[in-house]
Amino acid sequence: MIELNDDQKAIRDGVAAVCKRFDDEYWAECEREARFPREFHRAMAADGWLGVTMPEEFGGAGLGVTEAALVMHTVAGSGGAMAAASSIHINMFGPHPIVVHGSAEQKERWLPRLVSGEDQVCFGVTEPNAGLDTTNITTFATKVDGGYRISGRKIWTSTAQVANKILILTRTTARKDVRRASDGMTIFYTDLDRSRFEVKSIAKHGRAAVDSNMVFIDDVFVPETDRIGEEGKGFSYLLDSLNPERVLIAVEAIAIGQDALGRAARYARERSVFGRPIGQNQGIQHPLAERWIALEAAWLMAMKAAALYDSGKPCGAEANGAKFLGARAGYDACLQAVMTHGGMGYAKEYQVERLLREVLVTRLAPISEQLILSYIAERVLDQPKSY
């Protein structure tokens, strides 16, 4: 996809109109106060953007990953960076197991409240001792009368301080007792009741406005009606959302890089040293031009991956490649923006230092650059598995 069609342009413009109501000072204040951008979240919900990928019968728009990517690209490039993106990111892909594998009753009960913003959900997958090896999780759901009792630990669970629902991946059969490591895992969608779940915030490098947490789960009862799909099939359900998430992370990183690049270009035109604008110097021009090229190339890869996904074609290599290229291009652009500003790039006034801190997470999550390279080597270049 090179050019947007009229409907896609309308999505971009509609989201941009909401984002324009939240300026740099708003996002800087959320950052200083480590305060969730609730006003922004409500505004996006009010205009229907939280339901872009949700089925129309439940209040959503029923659109694809391409349209979700346009929403998230616009949001992340608005100045809000990952604080803005992360406040609504999970709505774009997280509920997919419910959409695809939930019962009719579950969809009716859960999806409209997610679309309207009445419910906020966090995603409990990663664990302290499992990391990227998701099949090695140990959070366990034991079957009891009427449901399950769950115990375990989750880490890096975003928005758990403000969410009232949690989508949680557990084991229902120990890894040693299954034929394949990916078997025996089950997904639940349930109330995040603070009297039953302990949620502790993690102090971190950036994106202070959107919390990341440790979640402690000790013998929490979850009714069987909160289980999504079949017991033991949870990992395969999780796979439905992996490629869309990689595409969305890619476009968010690209957008933040483009925002930073625009700020750097303006500063280079306006800042004069030794009687001339610094942007007149090729030492300033060329690195910025290279960052533009890298961002545009990453955008094309991300849109290719989205188009493949929406047409039902395999897109694992493209989605992973987009995440790698997008995160690298976004980070490099933000770093160059700070360097272009010189000393002022280190000051909070010009915002680029915040953009650099926030974009870094896209290189780390939800999958490392090393695992992406291993995936491409194995699946595309037919090399032996290295891990």
Rank of each mutant, 00 (worst) to 15 (best):
A174Q: 07
A365R: 15
R291M: 10
G59S: 07
Y189V: 15
G283D: 13
C122N: 02
S116L: 04
I284A: 04
A289R: 07
Q106D: 12
H205L: 11
L360K: 13
I168Q: 09
V380D: 12
A289K: 13
F221E: 03
S86K: 13
K165I: 09
S86L: 15
L132I: 14
N5D: 11
S212R: 12
A181P: 05
D332Y: 01
Q336V: 11
M72R: 12
G342T: 06
R180V: 06
F274I: 11
G229M: 03
S151L: 05
T225G: 06
V115L: 09
D310M: 10
K304W: 00
V65H: 05
L248N: 04
G124Y: 03
Y148K: 09
T170C: 10
T173L: 10
A34Q: 10
E290T: 08
A43N: 04
D193W: 01
Y387T: 15
Y346T: 12
L356V: 09
R276T: 11
E231F: 04
R357F: 05
R12C: 09
G152W: 09
F93N: 07
A302N: 07
T225C: 12
G124D: 07
V125W: 01
D7T: 14
V71W: 03
R357C: 06
G60A: 03
E56Q: 14
D6I: 13
A43I: 10
E349M: 04
S78T: 01
F140K: 04
E29N: 09
I202M: 07
Q280T: 13
E39M: 00
M301H: 14
P223I: 06
V361H: 01
N136P: 03
G279V: 02
P244E: 00
C19P: 00
M44H: 00
L295R: 01
H286V: 15
A83K: 05
L261Y: 14
Q383N: 04
S374I: 12
D211W: 01
W156F: 15
D6A: 15
K154V: 07
F36A: 02
Q280L: 14
I11R: 01
V338G: 12
H41S: 12
F40D: 09
V52W: 01
E108Q: 15
G326M: 01
G131C: 08
R291H: 04
T74W: 05
V222G: 06
R153G: 00
A317Y: 09
P97M: 02
G48C: 10
A45S: 10
P384Q: 09
A268L: 06
R113V: 07
Y346V: 08
L308F: 02
V71F: 14
A69F: 02
M92P: 08
N281E: 15
S368G: 10
I2H: 12
V220D: 03
L132V: 08
R379Y: 12
S368K: 13
G279F: 04
K204E: 09
G345R: 01
L63K: 14
A347S: 13
M185F: 06
A209W: 02
E3L: 14
E270S: 03
N243I: 14
E358C: 03
H205Q: 13
V251F: 09
A45R: 09
S241Q: 03
D7V: 06
I202R: 02
L360A: 13
Q336E: 14
G14T: 05
M185R: 04
A43V: 01
K233D: 15
I217R: 00
